[in-house]
């Protein structure tokens, strides 16, 4: 188990590069999360719509994107699109890839959230003269979002870890920088242990926050 001396010597440099990568990890996660939420809201609304065509569109979207590995989707977006002339830089490609994939998961989450809101709520909104869209936006969605908050938090934690796959499309995030360091120093054990610690440092606070949120929402429901 050699290399600890070299590891200690280069420790500041290693930590700096890993933390720079962690910032990009957060950027990819936040960007992917935002796109996922937007797509999830849109297609979740489609899924609960009266129009059969909209429901079918949402259904196909969900089934296709949930049945193909996210790595394959990333490669189609990064390498595939580039070969037909649409060249996305790595980070935006990762944001789009994780967003499209995550949107399929969140579609089902938002659908469940919308269906969990009592029908009487939207009926009452229509009765006082709101359009269906207004009822959805002003009355149903705010209540649905509360129901889905814990699921959203869990999704964000999953996405944070999944963003490591962006290293495969050369996005300079935590795992990518780690791979670069390993190729320079051959200190694979030490560096990947550090990487695991940095991921834990990001995901553990998030998951305890999400558990607190879950308890909070559960309390609100009882009241």
């Amino acid at each position: 188990m050699g290399g600890w001396h070299r590891f200690v010597d280069r420790f500041p440099e290693i930590v700096q590069l890993l933390l720079t990568g962690a910032v990009t990890t957060v950027v990819v996660t936040v960007g992917g999360f935002a796109v996922s939420v937007l797509l999830g809201l849109l297609f979740g609304t489609f899924k609960t719509s009266r129009s059969r065509a909209l429901r079918a569109v949402a259904h196909v979207y969900v089934e296709v994107f949930r049945s193909v590995p996210v790595l394959t989707q990333l490669f189609i977006i990064y390498f595939g699109l580039a070969s037909v002339g649409i060249r996305l830089p790595p980070v935006p490609a990762a944001v789009v890839g994780f967003g499209l994939n995550g949107g399929a998961y969140l579609t089902e989450v938002f659908r469940a959230g919308i269906e969990a809101v009592n029908r009487g709520q939207s009926e009452a909104a229509l009765a006082i003269g709101m359009t269906r869209l207004m009822a959805l936006r002003i009355i149903v969605m705010p209540q649905a979002v509360r129901v889905v908050l814990p699921a959203l938090a869990n999704f964000a934690i999953g996405l944070l870890k999944e963003s490591s796959l962006a290293s495969a499309v050369a996005a300079p995030e935590l795992s990518f920088n780690a791979g670069m360091l390993v190729r320079q120093t051959y200190l694979s054990t030490q560096i990947y242990v550090c990487v695991a610690i940095v991921y834990l440092a990001m995901s553990l606070p998030l998951s305890s926050a999400s558990r607190a949120l879950e308890r909070h929402v559960a309390r609100g429901k009882r009241a």
Partner: peptide, 23 residues
């Protein structure tokens, strides 16, 4: 459980494939 759920699959894969040879 907390370690496995708190880190990416990719990191675990690399730890086992690139890290274990050191042992």
């Amino acid at each position: 459980i907390e370690f496995v759920r708190g880190t990416p699959t990719l990191t675990q894969l690399f730890l086992i494939y690139f890290g274990l040879p050191a042992f």
